[in-house]
């Protein structure tokens, strides 16, 4: 079956808390928060579900502008927010359970944050290829 088209509404960071509050009051479930690079900057998308229909909210983001955490409204957001903070280096303020960069520990800091990453693999000793 053909899937339904999805609409993503872009809003300002300042409106985020109010909008998420109204989603919570209307009985929506928080499905996920994702982050993706958009040109030089980033965008963070919040998805909500009610009656099996997804609704998305999107805000622009950058590593030097903290985003207010929504974990006071939806506690579950702490996993997604910590993950984005660790992988993209985008700071969140007021996360209910803040791991401060130890949620996902990676070999290089913020692997998704910059586009200039080179991984050098050394041949292990005694292993033949």
């Amino acid at each position: 079956m053909k899937q339904p088209q999805q609409t993503i509404e872009t809003i300002a960071v300042e409106d985020l808390i109010n909008r998420v509050h109204s989603f919570h009051d209307d009985g929506y479930r928080l499905v996920q928060i994702s982050c993706a690079a958009e040109g030089e900057a980033f965008e963070v998308t919040y998805s909500f579900d009610k009656d099996l229909t997804l609704t998305h909210l999107r805000i622009p983001a950058s590593p030097d502008k903290p985003i207010p955490s929504i974990s006071r409204i939806y506690l579950a957001s702490f996993v997604y927010e910590n993950e984005i903070a660790d992988l993209f280096g985008i700071p969140f303020t007021g996360i209910a359970i803040d791991y401060k960069g130890t949620f996902i520990r990676t070999s290089i800091p913020h692997p998704f944050g910059s586009s200039q990453i080179s991984v050098v693999k050394k041949k292990p000793e005694g292993q033949h290829e």
Partner: peptide
């Protein structure tokens, strides 16, 4: 429920693939 977010910009490599897996959503519970 699993969510696969795919984002592409006309190249043969996708720009972003993000998976929200059920276990991650169940951790707060």
């Amino acid at each position: 429920e699993v969510i696969h977010y795919v984002k592409a910009n006309g190249k043969k490599n996708l720009a972003r693939h993000r998976v929200r897996t059920p276990t991650l959503a169940n951790v707060p519970a």
